[in-house]
Amino acid sequence: MSPRRSYDQYCSAARALDLVGDRWTLLIVRELLAGPRRYTDLHADLPGVSTDVLASRLKDMERDGLTTRRRLSPPGAAFVYELTGRGRELLPVLQALGTWGQAELGERRPTDAVRAHWFALPLLRCLEGQGVVEVRLEEGEFHVYVGAEKGPVYGEGPAPVEPDARLVLDAGTWEAVGRGESSLADAVRDGRITVSGEGTLAKALREA
């Protein structure tokens, strides 16, 4: 394991970048906000990262106290990576970075990879309250845990419990919301997002 590089500056921003400033590190955090994940799953959802770089980043993150590695119980018996409490504290950092980066999205390029669950964090920025929201996009399904203080922030596929709200929208709508060109409430009012469910979150979205 290579020694951690440092800016050697007595500045909290520089110290933070010592830990998370390397390429791919924050995107690994984005993926692990979904909960424990296997190396192969991480590699599949981080298109463009080499196996060597991913392995190196995961080792660095474990050394720096951002992640842990553990073996699942049989019959799975695979190793998974998950965020520590310190690692999960990067959620607002990613949210702020995502808000700042909205202006850089523009139209989706032919070479751009996309995963349905990459819309989870932008969606969470638009929701208030507490509960589970299930989302169906053309690219797939995912669910988010609104207001969760511990545990996963989102997950792939249908919600494991009865969600408080279900949203159905097309790619154009979620791209517009992700770029900040349309608010979630406006898209619901315009009929571009279909909301179902009788939970508090569903009612709030319909009444916004």
Score class of each variant (00 low, 15 high):
Gly191Thr: 13
Lys203Met: 11
Gly35Thr: 10
Ser50Thr: 12
Arg206Thr: 08
Leu97Tyr: 07
Ala103Met: 09
Ala113Lys: 08
Pro47Asp: 12
Glu207Val: 05
Gly180Glu: 10
His117Tyr: 02
Ala113Cys: 01
Gly76Arg: 15
Ser12Tyr: 14
Thr67Gln: 10
Arg71Met: 01
Leu124Cys: 00
Arg37Val: 00
Met61His: 11
Asp22Leu: 01
Val93Lys: 11
Asp45Met: 06
Thr67Val: 10
Val114Leu: 06
Glu107Gln: 15
Arg63Ile: 02
Glu31Ile: 02
Val133Thr: 09
Ser73Phe: 08
Asp186Val: 08
Gly191Gln: 07
Thr200Leu: 14
Val93Cys: 05
Leu167Glu: 09
Gly98Gln: 15
Tyr7Cys: 06
Trp100Tyr: 12
Arg71Trp: 11
Thr25Met: 02
Leu184Trp: 06
Val161Ile: 08
Trp100Ser: 11
Val153Cys: 09
Pro92Asn: 07
Ala185Glu: 12
Arg63Gln: 01
Leu72Ala: 03
Arg30Glu: 15
Trp174Leu: 05
Asp45Val: 10
Ala77Pro: 10
Glu162Val: 02
Ser12Gly: 04
Val93Asn: 11
Thr173Asp: 07
Leu26Ala: 11
Ser73Asn: 11
Ala204Gly: 09
Val133His: 05
Gly21Met: 00
Thr25Phe: 00
Gly197His: 00
Thr99Met: 13
Ala171Asp: 04
Thr194Glu: 14
Gln9Phe: 05
Met1Gln: 14
Val80Trp: 10
Leu94Ala: 09
Gly98Leu: 04
Ala34Pro: 08
Gly106Arg: 12
Arg30Tyr: 01
Arg70Asn: 02
Arg192Tyr: 07
Leu32Asn: 12
His43Asn: 08
Asp18Met: 04
Ala34Asn: 13
Asp41Lys: 08
Ser196Tyr: 02
Arg86Thr: 04
Ser73Glu: 15
Leu32Pro: 01
Gly155Leu: 01
Val132Tyr: 04
Leu201Asn: 07
Pro3Lys: 08
Asp41Pro: 05
Ala185Trp: 02
Val20Asn: 14
Gly157Lys: 13
Leu201Asp: 04
Leu184Asn: 05
Thr194Tyr: 03
Ala103His: 12
Tyr145Asn: 08
Leu83Gly: 00
Ala14Asn: 05
Arg88Leu: 01
Arg86Ile: 08
Asp112His: 09
Glu128Arg: 06
Tyr39Ser: 05
Val153Ile: 06
Ala165Arg: 07
Gln102Trp: 03
Asp186Lys: 13
Gln130Arg: 13
Val80Asn: 10
Cys11Trp: 07
Leu121Lys: 09
Gly35Asp: 04
Glu134Leu: 00
Ala116Ile: 00
Arg71Tyr: 11
Leu201Ala: 03
Cys11Gln: 12
Gly140Gln: 00
Gly35Met: 07
Pro75Gln: 08
Glu162Asn: 14
Met61Glu: 14
